[in-house]
Design a protein around this nucleic acid. Structure first.
Lengths: 135, 135
DNA sequence: CAGCATCCCACAGGATACTG
DNA sequence: CAGTATCCTGTGGGATGCTG
């Protein structure tokens, strides 16, 4: 509707300033941080609680130290996650969502919940697809 | 909330049969097809219109022939996209969302719209982050 | 505990060419 | 037009080791 089929590619016009469909638009990289393999799960985990680094690692099953660290940096840079370090010994660092992060996570969780709910349909579709030999 | 902190990892219990946070759960691969780099944009494009292969290529700026083909196969297998081929010459193939695909795309677009709307905040956060030297 | 630095490899994904 | 097949590269991401 709003998004016109003939919109200019370079991502900037007055009606729709940021268009994720345009290759060069910064909104695309942001969306990728959010929906990426680890980004989505990290945001989902933090939507429930403030968590520490290793708590997150356990919650997001299968994430490596390196990827979690990298993911958190990207989300922090985009203003979705806030990092709070206490200079104690042993060190304690808490990660929590910013207001913007919460808004994003809310929509993301709506999607995740839907996917989880509808998995039986997805699995049935996969079986049917495979049964007829991938066509 | 409902999601308990101590949920069993193997993805199956009666209250929450499919848990995307569990490494081995099939819902995770489905979520990745949906939120993946090309999956999200493909679903977004198809939520507006039925599109043909090359129309999709133009709409999803930057996608290669190979990746679009691969993405469409995955989405079709998961029961999100329906492929309709007319045996004419030249051939004509239309891709459209299934009802499940529409439900998914609706939530996905809600997320995409939010991201596009809030990009000014994101960009401001990035500048601030970079200005203080990445901390 | 919270993490950066390094090494290394598998695979995502682009470019090109070919087919029905 | 609507793809598949092949080749090749960049990088996502795991394993390991070290620091404050």
């Amino acid at each position: 509707m709003a998004r016109t089929e003939t919109s200019a590619r370079p991502c900037a016009d007055q009606a729709q300033p940021y268009d994720v469909f345009a290759k060069a638009c910064p909104s695309r990289s942001t969306l990728e941080h959010i929906t990426g393999r680890w980004g989505s799960l990290t945001l989902g985990a933090l939507s429930e609680n403030t968590l520490r680094f290793n708590e997150l690692r356990r919650r997001v099953d299968g994430v490596s130290e390196k990827m979690l660290s990298q993911t958190l940096h990207a989300l922090e840079r985009d203003g979705l996650v806030h990092r709070e370090a206490a200079a104690t010994n042993p060190p304690r660092v808490d990660y929590r969502l910013t207001p913007l992060g919460h808004a994003v996570a809310e929509r993301l969780l709506a999607l995740i919940d839907l996917v989880e709910e509808r998995m039986p349909e997805v699995l049935a579709a996969r079986e049917a697809y495979d049964a007829r030999g991938g066509r």
